[in-house]
Design a binder for these strands. Structure first.
Lengths: 98, 98
DNA sequence: AAAAGTGCTTTGTTTTTCAAAGTTAAATAA
DNA sequence: TTATTTAACTTTGAAAAACAAAGCACTTTT
C-alpha cells in the first residue's frame, strides 16, 4: 500500500489557510479586511498566513485605492487552484480508502 | 456570514492524525506496526499522534498477545467516527461555500 | 488637530511537530 | 544462558509554526 498521506499538501494542514483558499476559490477576489472579518483573525495572524500562501504562489495580491481608501485584494492563482484541488482529491482518495 | 473554519476540528489539522482516522474508519482495527508502515512514521511520532487521538477519545487501544507476540491494536470509537464525519462535513460545507 | 481605519511588520510567547535515543518486556537465536 | 531482536512506547531536545499584541506608516474622517 502507498502511504495515503503523502499526497496531502502540507500548506493546507492549516485550518486558516484552508479557509482562505475556500473563500478565494469561490469568490475570485477578496480584500484583506473581508478575510479578516470572515475568518475572525488578528491582522498579524492573517497577514502571516496570506504570506505563506503568497510565497507558494497560491495567491496574488493587488494593492489599489478604492475611492480614496487603500485596499489590498487577494486572488487565487491557477497554481493555487490546482494545488487546492489536488489536495482535496488526495483527501477524498484517502478517506475513501483508495 | 459565519466563520467557515470554526466548525473544523483542530485535532484534524494534522495530516498524520487525518491519516490514522482514515485508515481506522475503513479498517476497524489496525495494529501499531501496520500504522507505522502505512504512514511511514517513526515510533515516537506515531505514538504521540495516537496519544493525541486517544486523549480525545477518538480511538481506543487493545493490548494483547497474538500467538506469543505482543500486539497493540487501535480501534476508532463512536465519538471518533462522529468527530471525523463532522469534520469532513464541515470541510465540505466550507469548500462548497455553504 | 485628534481619532480612526488599512494593512502590515515586529516581537515574543506558547504550542506543535518530529527525530533520535533510551526503555521495558518478551521472544528467539546462538 | 547470554545476546539479539522486536514491539511499543517515553523522554529529550530542537526546530518550526501559530498566535496575540503592539507598533508603524499612511490616509481619511471628525
Amino acid at each position: 500500500m502507498v502511504n495515503p498521506i503523502e499526497a496531502l499538501n502540507k500548506i493546507f494542514d492549516s485550518r486558516i489557510r484552508l479557509g482562505v483558499m475556500s473563500i478565494l476559490i469561490v469568490n475570485d477576489s477578496v480584500s484583506f479586511n473581508e478575510l479578516k472579518q470572515m475568518l475572525e483573525l488578528t491582522d498579524g495572524n492573517l497577514a502571516s498566513h496570506l504570506n505563506t500562501l503568497e510565497q507558494a504562489d497560491y495567491l496574488k495580491v493587488q494593492k489599489a485605492f478604492i475611492g480614496k481608501k487603500t485596499n489590498t485584494t487577494y486572488f487565487i492563482t491557477d497554481l493555487g487552484r490546482q494545488a487546492f484541488k489536488a489536495h482535496l482529491d488526495a483527501l477524498e482518495k484517502m478517506i475513501k480508502g483508495v
